[in-house]
Amino acid sequence: MERRDFLKAALGGSAAAVCSVGMAQARPNLEPAEEAVGMLFDSTLCVGCKACVAKCKEVNSRVPAHSDPDNPWDSARDLSADTFNVIKVYRSGKAVNKDRIKDGFCFEKRSCMHCVDPGCVSACPTTSMRRDPKTGIVTHHPDSCIGCRNCMVACPYNVPQFDYNKVFGSIHKCQMCNQSGVERINNGQMTGCAEVCPTGATLFGSRKALLAEAKRRMTLKSGEVYTYPRGDVSKPDSMHEKTVPNYQKHIWGEKEAGGTNVMHISAIPFDQLGMPPLEERSAASVSETVQHTLYSYLALPAIALAGLTYVVKRNTDHDDDEGGMS
């Protein structure tokens, strides 16, 4: 084979591969689980009490972060192996008006969004990240984890966190209080954070009911009074009345990268609240389309191997006198 031919073949082959990627049945975004459970975080209701952070640590047996004699308070700065949810603040200018963009502030929660099409689940080589087929909860199973941390880089929200400071560390993340040994959801309870939230800023429920509630709030007019539920959106443990803020007409998690089971609404645009610039198609679906096109049933590699074996055999036989590989 001439070099020219080889290059042609190589380019042609790659072009064919690329075309086949484009033409092959693309793997679409995953759909939400039929009975997916989730949470709705309404940032305009959050008063920053951090009760959810405290309860989360209690349920998940985590230690307070940065707690020392100088800082007796649990003052986690972000998600970490010891902090599965954290209340962060948006502030601009004088930071005096709640839920205003100018000179305003508002609280924003960070915790696992429980993606409908989770990047971590797609990326994990050892199936240690799983999406529960019934509840849609994204869980972690440390027994098969090798700690490659691909889940961390593949998560759009930087949710899975590794214990860097331990020799025998592990990945940690929110599992919606349903990990074995806790199983609040299976036992008919709600998540710890939704249970303690005094204002219903963190609301628990089925994804469908929460999405309906979020859409209802999108239709409310700023200034009118709305009765907000607390706890579980379908069977609230109590309600309270509050003046409706000026909502951004955007439900984060309805569509972003295939959607999430934990959705956010706010009066501040989400890019200011640190949400990533996501498109509707999930990166996981693109990645899996490429992988499955190239490696479906290992067909392409098998054909390539057959061809290569033939060519190599012919070429080594040809110059056998030179001693093949040696």
Partner: peptide, 9 residues
């Protein structure tokens, strides 16, 4: 208010 006991985004 101003919220200084909270981490920024």
């Amino acid at each position: 208010t101003p919220p200084n006991a909270f981490p920024d985004i």
